[in-house]
Design a protein around this nucleic acid. Structure first.
Length: 273
DNA sequence: AGACGTACCTGACCGC
DNA sequence: TGCGGTCAGGTACGTC
């Protein structure tokens, strides 16, 4: 489900609500999601949550026992803070805190995952070692992107969704960023010109920042940690707008939908060249 | 090494 | 009402 803005929103919400609280116990209601729940997870007792942050689309809960709990929401996962819980279908993991509030991980499709690792080894973890730079950090520059796109035949939309190149950009924000940069998503990466790469770098950063400001995009399952909806979906220029007219061009061109790498891509054939 | 398809899973929706 | 088909925000892994 969630791309970088949604994961960032959940992280911020969690941090605000549960930083420095203690996890009293963890309840698991099945043995696995995409991967088995790690050994030791259910045995965590009276451990403090010392920090919460994000790497790519992973939520990192750093614990007082020098371990970090890694949570990925997959396509349909949510982490919600609740006072009074009546457990629902697909509530798979429940953290009970020292003030009796609970953090509930619900994930209907079970593409999400939870893992546990020593905090100091986190960069070497198999989920992290291949990841590219964070798009909102200063390492993500036009020069970097140009270097990575050089010689690549893959369509530029697939390239910017490759987490080895840059993290956090998923199917929605890839279409949105390419619209904002005025670039046709089907273009071969190696054919982008330097000014276009500069525009794309800026567009990726800007669209992600604006989405974070709006609390992410809510469709189907996504909610913030406090249960509220994000509202960036109302600002989509192209995603999900097939056969509607483009908001960006005077000609009111019709938004097209094509398949790339088995997934839907939306774009305006007049604004994006 | 890189490119590509496929698998993982449930639920919502559509047409018949 | 029910059934089958399709589609959905992600990632890892196999094969070529």
């Amino acid at each position: 489900m969630p791309e970088l803005p949604e994961v960032e929103t959940v992280c911020r919400g969690l941090k605000k609500a549960v930083l420095n609280r203690q996890i009293d116990s963890i309840q698991l209601r099945r043995s696995d999601l995409r991967i088995p729940f790690p050994t030791g997870l259910k045995d965590i007792r009276r451990v403090k949550i010392t920090d919460i942050d994000r790497r790519a689309k992973y939520i990192l809960m750093h614990l007082g026992d020098k371990q970090t709990m890694i949570v990925h929401l997959g396509m349909s996962g949510s982490l919600t803070i609740m006072k009074n819980v009546s457990l629902q279908k697909h509530d798979h993991m429940i953290l009970t805190l020292d003030d009796k509030t609970k953090i509930v991980f619900n994930d209907p499709r079970r593409f999400g995952l939870v893992d546990l690792t020593k905090t100091k080894n986190i960069d070497q973890h198999r989920f992290f070692r291949h990841l590219g730079p964070e798009p909102l950090e200063k390492e993500f520059t036009a020069a970097y992107l140009a270097e990575k796109l050089k010689g690549k035949k893959a369509p530029v939309k697939l390239a910017i969704m490759d987490q080895r190149l840059v993290v956090g950009v998923g199917n929605i924000y890839a279409s949105e960023a390419l619209f904002e940069a005025g670039i046709d998503p089907r273009r071969e990466s190696r054919n982008l010109q330097p000014p276009e790469i500069r525009k794309l770098t800026t567009a990726i950063r800007d669209v992600l920042k604006r989405a974070i400001k709006a609390g992410g995009s809510s469709l189907r399952d996504y909610v913030q940690a406090n249960g509220e909806l994000g509202y960036f979906q109302h600002q989509w220029a192209v995603y999900g707008r097939e056969s509607q007219s483009c908001k960006g061009c005077a000609r009111k061109e019709t938004i097209l939908k094509v398949q790339q790498g088995g997934r839907a891509t939306f774009f305006c054939p007049a604004c994006q060249k």
